[in-house]
Design a protein around this nucleic acid. Structure first.
Length: 860
RNA sequence: GCCCGAGUGGCGGAACUGGUAGACGCGCAGGACUUAAAAUCCUGUUGGCUGUAAAGUCAGUAUCGGUUCGAUUCCGAUCUCGGGCACCA
């Protein structure tokens, strides 16, 4: 009776389903004396193509951990669901006329079936989909909470908007405007990335991906929803420190948040034709202020018009117009050739009274800092390039430390001529009050002076921008917002949620950027219950990230109709103990989800301030040819085919055996054959293929000590590999193979030994494990059997191979009892024939001995 | 350009805190079983040189250098590949 994986896998999948083996009980029914473990996969977007082999990689890893933890006696939460809103379904609808809801449900069914065929131990009773009404009701509910909150800068947290102190003496309209200007979700006319082909705006971070696909993205001013994530910049940055995340992801988020510390400085304008005012600039190097030879305003800077002289007005206006037509991307691409125009006005350097020209240049971004900079061409690469192009003066004000007079002269000459641009820290020169100070000291001194004289202050800036939160799409969460005819906006009340998507059949947006929902007249035009005013609904929808910002909370209490998740369930299960997904979500999803969680924390709906304690990124699986799988290359491996040919257990095992989880590695059909062979070897060890009965090699009275030692070592290795969190299951599988190879060499082995082996195999290859476990006469499910312990005494080596070296080269080896004294192994080394041969006639200088390891005889 | 990460047999990859480099698998070679093949089992497999063999010997973890009795592991420089950011002042 051969190893019939198809039959076995079907049988046990049915068994698990019928017996609800992986059901995590509701909170009230849980044995709370046992520790909890929340192991989460990044839920998939159910695309029409079905699963690819990359999906099972991460899912297998989490499944191994989940099954292991259950056997270790943990309460395990291991859910799955669907990130089911998204553009592809909508594009498909435009092409075929099939409603996104229908195609999405079809895709979900397909994904569900495929995931079930992989034997993952998900609790399917907790399945959720972001596009289902009972899910997005709560996405909308959270949005309303965000909308109705403001950030209390002093307390450093969000609060309900009712608690916002409003300045007295405001009329109703002013009061409303004031409140609206503080909300964590707000409407603003912002320059957005408009993609005409997709008919929607894109978040900054989404642009590169779409451009790569060949879409055009242009800049356009549109009234859009934004979330005030910038208020959380500092907390999002600091929170990273405590997380057990890969350092590169932390680094990416850190760069994305982009904190920089410096000063803002006020320059008075000494303008042409009596124009005046002042410009505030931001710099991280206030110590270089004596080297400022010009000021630059971003084209969109408010002051540009005011300070531009009449004779320069035409030129400046034209420059601004040109700049406004460029997208951010174009600006960046054209960056190599910096351009700018003189405004005709001058600014006065507060530290030395020097008059310097004020220019407009689009290499300065309006959205960062104050939208204005001081140009220090001696010590900033960009300013240097610009100054050389427009022949603006270069003044050396920071010299590298330790230069002598001659060196300093040379350095100055090179700086002035533009040959050198020193951007590092050093010693201030030509810098009045800070001459001779080292950079950190000089920065302090200048900041103190600026603050004392009211010319500036210490400032912190972040690269992080507010999150552009609306999209002109159909297939997303509608905003629970109405615009009243009096021009005010209000959020829906809880009993009006969910605000369900209209069954509109038109999925195209207007060229002007009118979203598809604007076509649904009846849905859009309403009258407000409370005031009786005419109103229109918000017709934008939320971006795909919205649902994934909080789905991990819904899993904990998926059928709760009163709350998005009960506080008790949240407190018990959160934070997520292990979160596995692809590197592509390192910044966006993971920063947005942290942000929402922190808002919910501030408002008292969750009890921790970070949602994901440990994060792990799985690597990509490449095609057999070593390049990324793609339809056009024809190197795509379909998991369904693999399962048909080799079975799920082989596939799971192979995906883990290919290498460390985080590595990018190529698929190999030969490789999976090897793992299939391994499972067949295990099968034949237990089952007599002729008769179908248990193998006659299994005996109760056979206690081969070396095998017992080996199974203990194998248990230890597998246990340690799962516990240490490095996700290197390739070595666990190697050890299991070694064990099986050894077992093949023995005549007989005890039932207990093979049972222990099957237990540790079970998280990796659960179907064959269940089958063999029950054939050995045990009651299913193997998932309910405790994980085997190893005997620490038995994993210790009794004999160790001592290496004898002469001058660091291995010359001989000897097996000795573990724990033999250094003296003894040293004597043994000196007594060794081969060692003797190599030290013959030479003088022993030194002998290095490491217990249980080696002896190195150093001779001359 | 800047910031991360990685370079180990024909291939995927092992090697604990510096202590036998190449575990395990794939591939390949040889053998057993078979009329034959597949399947299966067993043996070998970093390279060079010497040797019929046993064995010996040198080189070897991208390259060059350093620290050390001893370096895949630590330090410095260089090269290559992968990923991210890209005028953030």
């Amino acid at each position: 009776m051969n190893y019939n994986f198809t039959e076995i896998e079907k049988k046990w999948q049915d068994y698990w389903e019928e017996n609800q083996t992986f059901r995590t009980p509701d909170l009230k029914d849980i044995d709370k004396s046992k520790p909890k473990y929340y192991v989460l996969d990044m839920f998939p977007y159910p695309s029409g193509d079905g699963l690819h082999v990359g999906h099972p990689e991460g899912y297998t890893a989490t499944d191994i951990v989940a099954r292991y933890k259950r056997m270790k006696g943990f309460n395990v939460m291991h859910p799955i669901g669907w990130d089911s809103f998204g553009l592809p379904a909508e594009q498909y609808a435009r092409k075929t006329g099939i409603h996104p809801e229908i195609s999405t449900e079809n895709s979900i069914s397909r994904f569900r079936k495929q995931l079930k065929s992989l034997g993952f131990s998900f609790d399917w009773k907790r399945e959720v989909a972001t596009s289902h009404e009972d899910f997005y009701k709560w996405t909308q509910w959270i949005f309303v909470k965000i909308f109705n909150s403001y950030y209390d800068d002093e307390a450093g947290r969000a609060r309900p908007i009712e608690e916002l102190p409003v300045p007295p003496g405001l009329v109703e309209k002013e009061r409303k405007d004031y409140v609206n200007s503080r909300r964590l979700a707000y409407l603003a006319d912002v320059p957005v990335n408009w993609c005409p082909e997709l008919g929607t705006v894109l978040a900054n971070e989404e642009v590169p991906e779409q451009v790569e696909k060949g879409y055009t993205v242009v800049r356009k001013n549109m009234r859009q929803w934004n979330l005030r994530i910038t208020k959380y910049a500092e907390r999002l940055l600091n929170g990273l420190e405590r997380l057990d995340w890969p350092s590169n992801v932390k680094e990416l988020q850190k760069n994305w948040i982009g904190k920089s510390t410096g000063a803002s400085v006020i320059f008075e304008i000494d303008g042409a034709a009596g124009r005046s005012g002042s410009v505030e600039i931001f710099t991280t190097r206030p110590d270089t202020i004596y080297g400022a030879s010009y000021l630059i305003l971003a084209p969109e800077h408010k002051l540009v018009k005011e300070i531009t002289s009449e004779e320069k007005a035409d030129e400046v206006r034209k420059y601004i117009e040109d700049a406004s037509r460029k997208s951010d991307l174009e600006r960046a691409e054209l960056a190599k050739d910096k351009t700018g125009v003189f405004t005709g006005s001058y600014a006065v350097n507060p530290v030395n009274g020097k008059k310097i020209p004020v220019l407009v240049a689009d290499y300065v971004l309006v959205s960062y800092g104050t939208g204005a900079i001081m140009g220090v061409p001696g010590h900033d690469e960009r300013d240097n390039e610009f100054a050389r192009k427009y022949s603006l003066g270069i003044i050396p004000v920071v010299a590298p430390e330790g230069l002598d007079d001659e060196g300093l002269r040379e350095f100055s000459r090179k700086t002035v001529s533009g040959e050198e641009c020193f951007t590092g820290e050093g010693v201030s020169v030509n810098s009045g009050m800070i001459d001779g100070m080292r950079t950190p000291e000089a920065i302090e001194a200048i900041c103190n002076w600026l603050e004392a004289n009211g010319k500036g202050r210490r400032t912190v800036n972040f690269k992080l921008r507010d999150w552009l939160f609306s999209r002109q799409r159909y297939w997303g969460e509608p905003f629970p917002i109405v615009h009243l005819e009096d021009g005010t906006i209000k959020s829906l009340s809880n009993d009006e949620l969910p605000l369900v998507l209209p069954e509109t059949a038109v999925f195209t947006s207007g060229a002007s950027g009118e979203p598809p929902l604007a076509n649904a007249g009846e849905w859009v035009n309403i009258s407000d219950q409370e005031t009786g005013l005419k109103a229109i609904r918000e017709t934008n929808t939320m971006p795909q990230w919205a649902g994934s910002c909080w789905y991990f909370l819904r899993f904990l209490d998926p059928h709760n109709t009163n709350e998005f998740c009960s506080k008790e369930a949240e407190r018990f299960w959160m934070p997520v103990d292990l979160y596995i997904g692809g590197m592509e979500h390192a910044v966006l999803h993971l920063i947005y989800a942290r942000f929402w969680y922190k808002v919910l924390y501030d408002l008292g709906y969750v009890s921790y301030d970070e949602p994901f304690s440990k994060l792990f990124n799985q690597g990509m699986i490449l095609g057999e040819d070593g390049v990324k799988m793609s339809k056009s290359r024809g190197n795509v491996i379909n998991p369904d085919d693999v399962i048909k040919e080799f079975g799920t257990d082989s596939m799971r095992l192979f995906e883990m055996f290919m290498g460390p989880l985080e590595a990018t590695k190529p698929w190999s059909t030969k490789g999976i054959e090897g793992l299939n062979r391994f499972l067949k070897r295990i099968w034949r060890l237990v089952i007599d293929e002729e008769t179908g009965a248990l193998s006659s090699k299994i005996a109760d009275d056979c206690w081969d000590e070396s095998i017992i030692r080996l199974i203990n070592k194998t248990i230890k290795k597998v246990t340690d590999d799962i516990e240490d969190g490095d996700m290197k299951f390739n070595t666990s599988i190697s050890y299991m193979m070694i064990f099986i190879n050894e077992l093949y060499k023995t005549e007989r082995f005890s039932k207990e030994v093979i049972e222990k082996f099957i237990l540790i195999l079970s998280p990796f290859a659960p179907h064959i494990a269940e089958e063999l476990w029950s054939r050995l006469g045990n009651k299913p499910s193997i998932q309910n059997v405790p994980w085997p312990e190893y005997d620490p005494e038995l994993v210790k080596e009794e004999t160790v191979t001592i290496v004898f070296q002469v001058n660091g080269k291995v010359r001989s080896k000897l097996d000795m009892n573990a724990g033999t004294s250094e003296k003894e192994i040293e004597d043994a080394a000196l007594d060794d024939e081969k060692v003797k041969k190599h030290i013959l006639g030479k003088q022993i200088v030194r002998i290095v001995t490491v217990k249980d390891k080696m002896v190195n005889v150093v001779v001359k």
